[in-house]
Design a protein around this nucleic acid. Structure first.
Lengths: 266, 266
DNA sequence: CGGGTCCTTGACAGATTTCAAGACGTGTGG
DNA sequence: CCACACGTCTTGAAATCTGTCAAGGACCCG
């Protein structure tokens, strides 16, 4: 009744997470600490592998957690694609990110004992459950793990800073271009093609994420296509000139905002 | 040669951090752990007060740290006002925040061993130096402190998520209105008037922070003034209708973006 | 009092959103 | 198997907002 694997239409270069293609869904049910660390690409020496973390599967559209739900878990994506969204006071969805393999989410719940966002699966997903208390305990014994935790948190913080910068200072074209290159890089990291891939999210979701309307996203994509920078057909994207996309910058805001620095030094 | 206190023109309601008005700058030089926690408004039971943290003073324009500088310290504002800025690849300044009393900064350095932003004093400031290693050590012994650290980190994360939402989905008027109310609330928290206060930053800095130009900020402020919502004269702002400002919402983006949720439930 | 920075205001251009209509794709039910 | 319904994507035209450029005034400091 359901597809064997929602990632099957992704243009895979190598498959590190083979899913059984034989009838029933036969996926990995537990991961050790070192496996999780490897997935997240954090270096950890001699991890205590007596601890094992449970996996849980979700299908497209299902919610991993909702806003206001008591916080007790962190999550790491083992496979699949998701989106994290906030709901503003008007009830509008605001997409905050698109977690994929190796990404951790749920971090926003650490403060205040409850999640402030919700996470929805965009495809069939396999996520690893990591009880926060357990992680804290492990951290006490292993400085490596503790450091990794702080690092993960810090990375997220920096990623958000970059988003703020982008949305605040770049035009629509540059934002979409960066979004594409960001996806490209992430796909490359997890073993997919960086040149050709499927968008798992709608134009509306991309627009929400970038602070644009779906029409603007669509138009920009069409423009890139016309310029030969990419090829787009529905959800399938092929990158032709990554360098141009990376460089692309049209600046609606400050142009003469030269460094006002160098006034007083400490 | 320098002003006795740059906060002296703030419309104070209560003064919890008295500065000596007698000639030479006679400020607090050390704070205990519990004092720092109190400043940050984090509840901590029986803190180890044998540890003391050094204070350092800065004058307007001085940099607390710069981008790329090796990370080893976190900072808590004891008094004064600052701004944290990132520099994008074009060399433009991008204001990320305006730390004030009780705020912690330097968190962005935890990941990657180096700061990714710089922090500049907007007025005479007194900041507390908190060696990260020391904090980690204390955290191991005191779950309270450790929890507080995670909480501080998480709070910052959520704050940035809010910023992304605002910049991405609100028009200029709403952004400025929220900015004013945010300042108002923070001033109230640290014992200043929430109705009348001085902007410590320039329109340019506000604009950079909100993803707008200084002209738009100026115009919007003037418009609010004309509507009677506030009074502005240069740096002095008086809030007249906080409720209107909080509610104000002009939506350039999605209007018909009704909840597309409620499709599949977990 | 002069220089410099910051703020305000106006006119204009340009980008993005809004509104609207139609094509494309997929899934469901007959 | 096909038709229909729905959600998604594309494209066009007009309206609006915000940025850009420019000039003048206010304020601070030396």
């Amino acid at each position: 009744m359901f597809t064997t694997s929602t990632t099957s239409d992704q243009f895979a270069v190598s498959r590190s997470a083979p899913l059984a293609s034989t009838g029933a869904r036969q996926t990995k049910l537990w991961s050790s600490l070192s496996e999780v660390c490897q997935l997240m690409q954090v270096p950890v020496s001699h991890a205590d592998d007596t601890v094992r973390f449970q996996h849980v599967q979700f299908r497209a559209g299902q919610r991993i957690y909702t806003i206001g739900q008591p916080f007790d878990m962190l999550y790491v994506v083992y496979s699949g694609f998701l989106k994290t969204v906030a709901i503003d006071e008007s009830g509008n969805e605001l997409v905050l990110g698109f977690p994929m393999k190796g990404d951790m989410f749920g971090i926003d719940g650490i403060h205040g004992k409850a999640y402030t966002s919700e996470v929805v699966a965009l495809s069939t997903c396999d996520v690893i459950l990591i009880p926060f208390k357990t992680l804290l305990t492990i951290g006490k014994a292993s400085p490596d793990v503790e450091q990794a935790m702080w690092g993960a948190m810090g990375r997220e913080l920096i990623r958000e800073q970059r988003m703020i910068s982008s949305i605040g200072s770049l035009g629509a074209e540059a934002r979409v271009a960066r979004f594409l290159m960001s996806l490209s890089d992430r796909f490359a990291e997890i073993g997919f093609s960086s040149k050709q891939f499927n968008l798992r999210m709608t134009r509306q979701e991309i627009g929400s994420y970038l602070g644009l309307t779906l029409e603007t996203v669509s138009r920009t994509l069409s423009a890139f296509n016309a310029l030969g920078l990419i090829s787009v057909e529905q959800k399938t994207v092929t990158i032709h000139e990554p360098d141009s996309l990376k460089t692309l910058r049209r600046l609606p805001p400050s142009k003469h905002a030269a460094r006002s620095a160098a006034k007083l030094a400490a």
